[in-house]
Nucleic acid binder design. Structure first.
Lengths: 251, 251
DNA sequence: CTCCCTATTTACTCCGACATATTTCCTGTG
DNA sequence: CACAGGAAATATGTCGGAGTAAATAGGGAG
């Protein structure tokens, strides 16, 4: 049972607009709290969060707020509610792990290293193929977006937030060039995951090598329309990230 | 604006448990209605669904029900609500297209053929790589699950629902053998999409070729632990589906 | 004539109570 | 002793109202 009160919910009412924090609404804060609890394993699949009124009292909020939070969790496939039976945590394979918010919850506490590995493995599968398609379908605007992102990466290093944002922009530009909405959505999730990992572990040694030349190789191949070279160049990039993840697993 | 009343919501109260219909709850029905409206383009990104009370009256439901529905849409990244500004439809790149429910909404009306193509393209990228991993990591239980699914596919043909379910089970067993939760979640979405397409267009000519031998080749390669052969065999499978999608685009 | 400050309108957010459906337990019968 | 039917208990689903934050429009000053 959650013993902590919801004093953390007070902060979100203060910060106004587009905060990325625990949730800018009351029910958002509750969803964050419950979501992290589920993702961290505090509530295992099959457990029932019985007692709508009990939880509402526990969290010092009205039943409506608690109910809206449950609605969010239900929408993401984490729980399912049935009258009398209570709210049950669904099995993992029903969870929508690719949801950016769920990803945030997964990385809020101690992220499961196996899950991080699976995400980078997925990235290693998708991005080279995306680079291949981008090489075939990119237009001038796409190339300009990639070029701008590269320039920004050179100005700021990857140790700064601006530099990491430029890195994300570069990959996003590639995904946009694929003219594939499903891929684009997927990349948004993966990008968020990568962002969370870098934010979680601020390890300085994470950049053992200058990433710019590898990125330039990807760009050149896409600009030249060489699909095979683009896929191979991107393969080098993501394999480096995958290796980095594997090495950090041994810590 | 939605002119139809929500009499369709009555049916969901009757059917009890795990119905796959428009929504087994009232707010679920509203979310379905609004979700399909957004996915079909009836409400374009940037449009505001202003008037909580107006919509609630329009739909003949209470504000709470409408509000819960909006909460679901918000959780899936389709809309964002702010005081005074109203509820605004977010740009497409914020949408969680991989959410099974969103996929259902996309296929509820006239599915966008470009989007269907992008989904099958994603499948063509992911599944061969998944087969490769499965060949390296599968154990006896995985192989048994695949074998059982194959047997079920032989018993029922793909023209029946049971046969298609067996097909999904086969692919799911492969994805489970990858030991990759992110891939598994993704395959659930893709499987739902494939299911929706077959359900949407009941074209008899969609099966020009006996799919069993191709599936057996995938199974044999995975059982043998031959990663390259597994990837190639799966490639044949998904390329056939992709070609089928492309040909149906010309209708 | 333009810019800034203020007040009003507007629409979302939160709250507490009522109605309803379902599960479980108990009792009676075969 | 086992099974079926009914009643009670409990959680979910629904409803209308009050509070609050924000955007727009209007007025005043520069």
């Amino acid at each position: 049972m959650p013993d902590a009160d919801l004093t953390t919910a007070d902060e979100n009412t203060k910060q106004g607009e587009e905060a990325r924090g625990p949730g800018r609404r009351l029910h958002g804060a509750i969803a964050h709290k419950l979501g992290t609890a589920i993702l961290s394993g505090k509530y295992a699949p099959g457990d029932i969060l019985s007692g709508e009124v009990a939880f509402a009292e526990e969290l010092q909020v009205s039943r409506s707020a608690y109910r809206e939070a449950i609605q969010v969790l239900t929408a993401k496939g984490l729980v399912a509610s049935r009258p009398k039976a209570g709210t049950r945590v669904l099995p993992r394979d029903r969870w929508n792990l690719l949801d950016p918010e769920v990803l945030g919850w997964a990385f809020a506490g101690e992220p499961d290293i196996e899950f991080v590995r699976s995400l980078f493995e997925l990235r290693a599968i998708v991005e080279p193929a995306a680079a291949r398609l981008a090489a075939q379908r990119r237009d001038k605007a796409d190339l300009k977006a990639m070029k701008d992102a590269l320039a920004a990466m050179r100005r700021h290093t990857l140790t700064t937030e601006a530099g990491r944002a430029a890195d994300r922009d570069f990959h996003k530009a590639i995904l946009q060039a694929t003219r594939n909405d499903a891929l684009l959505t997927l990349s948004a999730s993966i990008g968020a995951a990568v962002n969370w990992t870098t934010q979680f572990k601020q390890r300085a040694r994470a950049l053992p090598r200058n990433p710019i030349p590898d990125h330039v190789k990807v760009y050149d191949a896409i600009a030249a329309g060489d699909a095979a070279a683009a896929a191979e160049a991107m393969n080098v990039l993501v394999d480096l990230a995958l290796e980095d993840t594997r090495s950090s697993m041994e810590d």
